[in-house]
């Protein structure tokens, strides 16, 4: 597989091969750092640090986890490091929308302009809702929903056990739903607005 060849070559010091890996993974890494760091400049810096750490750590990368899990772990650590260094605090303040946040992603290719606008609005609400979550809940939801990692992969990436991943996803999801219900018209069905709890309880 091409990626494995690049990894092997980069491990030997081949910078061109590593550049291929950067291009292959930059969107994925950025998709994570952007939600964990919030500010675009911080996200860019953390992403860069993650790749730098990958370059430095390649000789020690033993391959017992996949390369993607490993790079996500480095990205997650880089975000933690950066925020600790800069002494910034993530507040649990309610969601807020400004121009930069709404345009956090490139517009998706939707069939009609109205659908595109609706999709953009939904994206924005979810992004805002994510920011209202604690970092622990936000991170597992991002890895699950955006990166589509399994529970095992998330556990591996964040050095947690699967039980913790499961409970964080469950609580994070409920929390996100609560925020979306309270702040907007995300869920159009009245039944879900009535119940703040899940299931039949």
């Amino acid at each position: 597989m091409q990626e494995q060849q690049w990894i092997d070559m980069a491990r030997q010091g081949d910078q061109d091969a590593f550049a291929q890996l950067v291009q292959l993974y930059e969107k994925r890494v950025f998709a994570l750092t952007l939600r964990m760091c919030r500010q675009r400049e911080d996200a860019a810096e953390a992403a860069q640090e993650a790749f730098l750490a990958a370059w430095q750590g390649l000789p020690f990368f033993r391959g017992d986890s996949s390369f993607s899990t490993w790079i996500y772990r480095l990205a997650s650590n880089a975000c933690v490091d950066l925020l600790r260094r800069e002494g910034r605090h993530r507040s649990a303040a309610g969601p807020s929308l400004n121009d930069e946040d709404v345009n956090i992603d490139a517009p998706s290719s939707a069939p009609s302009p109205q659908e595109a606008a609706e999709q953009k609005e939904l994206h924005a609400q979810v992004e805002a809702g994510l920011r209202a979550l604690s970092p622990e809940h936000r991170e597992v939801l991002v890895l699950r929903e955006i990166h589509q990692l399994s529970y095992d992969e998330i556990a591996d990436t964040l050095s947690l056990d699967v039980g913790t991943v499961k409970s964080r996803i469950s609580r994070g999801r409920k929390q996100l739903r609560k925020v979306l219900v309270e702040t907007g018209n995300f869920f159009s069905r009245p039944s879900s607005k009535e119940s703040g709890k899940e299931g039949c309880k």
């Binding site: 969107k27 998709a31 992403a47 992603d105 994206h123 609400q125 979810v126 992004e127 955006i146």
Partner: peptide, 10 residues
């Protein structure tokens, strides 16, 4: 409604 990886603006 979650954004996709492909949408990330690097």
């Amino acid at each position: 409604a979650f954004p996709e990886v492909e949408d990330a603006q690097v």
